[in-house]
């Protein structure tokens, strides 16, 4: 199943409610061989985050440095451009995480 603009649009309420939420890293990896539409961003970290309140999410880590890649790093949910679109397509935005 592709992540299409309509799918992201259906999630917009949830997405906007997450912006600014804080949490910490539970698990991390660096993706070096990415799926196609994320190619221009590789290598990039993917992290499992536990938000304040206990909700868990998986997402990309942005604006990161080597020292941020550890369990317990505090992060904040931000809205970022998701990926590189093919041709002239709707530009998708979604939640990513930034170290605090």
């Amino acid at each position: 199943m592709k992540v299409t603009p309509v799918k992201l649009w259906r999630r917009q309420k949830e997405t906007s409610s997450l912006i600014g939420k804080k949490g910490h890293i539970l698990l991390w990896t660096i993706i070096r061989v990415p799926a196609k539409s994320f190619g221009q961003q590789a290598p990039y970290p993917v992290v499992v985050v536990e938000l304040e309140g206990g909700q868990r999410m998986v997402g990309q880590l942005v604006d990161w440095q080597e020292k941020d890649l550890r369990v317990g790093t505090n992060v904040i949910a931000v809205l970022r451009r998701l990926r590189t679109e093919e041709k002239a397509d709707v530009i998708s935005y979604n939640i990513k995480f930034k170290p605090l």
């Binding site: 061989v33 990415p34 993917v46 997402g59």
Partner: peptide
Amino acid sequence: NSDDVTAGLMAAGSDEERIAGATFPGLYAL
């Protein structure tokens, strides 16, 4: 090509994992 296979295999995951840019090696890396 391996890009298409990598993306195709992610059909086994969830929208949340695909939006995160995760791959299967990435999920097992976690």
